[in-house]
């Protein structure tokens, strides 16, 4: 039905997150119909991104320079380091605008059930970085799941003997959330950690 080039384009587009063969066909058709305004600029942008975007050697974030803009910024507090599981978590925290320190992306979480070990993540590199860069506070912003908390406690154990303040994110009711729709674990934690108002 289609030429090989179109089939290949549909195949590649359908492999993007959230897309399937039907959305791949729709996108391919859209791009091919609007070649000048959409397809060619997209090709150009993808080409530039592929050449320019690098993984930051300090924190694991994505940027166009070998050390990302967060790590090189002088306005950031270089004594506070926030450890996150994935780059998407870093971007989420940046969206909040509340945190002004630096980051470290682990690239996953320890999972005894799936067999992810400390050496599969960048934990030894993280510990070495903390030891050598004068950090005074480490914020372990890991997900409140069984595996996230296991990773948190493992890192805490690795940093036990260092003169550091180690903190974690608070757990509880999300803003705008309704109690009736919350899971029991969140509600229990929120009630256990209730505070004076």
């Amino acid at each position: 039905m289609f030429g090989q080039e179109i089939q290949q384009l549909i195949f590649l587009l359908s492999r993007f997150p959230g897309l399937g063969p039907r959305s791949g066909r729709r996108l391919a058709l859209h791009l091919l119909k609007k070649k000048e305004t959409t397809l060619l600029p997209l090709i150009h942008t993808l080409q530039r991104a592929a050449e320019a975007v690098k993984v930051c050697s300090e924190c694991g974030n994505l940027d166009t320079s070998p050390v990302c803009s967060i790590c090189t910024s002088t306005k950031r507090d270089s004594k506070v380091l926030c450890v996150v599981e994935e780059i998407s978590d870093l971007w989420a925290l940046e969206r909040s605008g509340e945190y002004h320190g630096r980051y470290f992306v682990l690239g996953g979480k320890l999972s005894a059930i799936s067999g992810v070990k400390p050496e599969d993540l960048k934990i030894p590199f993280l510990v070495n970085k903390i030891k050598t860069s004068g950090i005074t506070e480490v914020v372990l912003a890991l997900n409140p799941t069984l595996e996230g908390q296991t990773t948190l406690y493992y890192i805490r154990e690795c940093l036990e003997n260092l003169p550091l303040k180690i903190t974690g994110l608070a757990h509880g009711v999300p803003m705008g959330g309704e109690l009736d729709y919350l899971d029991d674990a969140t509600l229990t934690t929120a009630m256990m950690r209730r505070q004076v108002v």
Binding site: A112, I113, P144, T145, L146, Q149, T150, Y153, R156, E157, H171, D183, D184, A185, T186, L187, T188, T189, M192
Partner: peptide, 24 residues
């Protein structure tokens, strides 16, 4: 869902490791 033990074990690293081991 009926009951989740996670909230009560979240702040105890050994018990969390125990839960992982039991399930595994």
């Amino acid at each position: 869902p009926e009951y989740s033990p996670l909230a009560k074990l979240m702040h105890d690293p050994e018990a969390l490791a125990g839960l992982s081991a039991i399930c595994s």
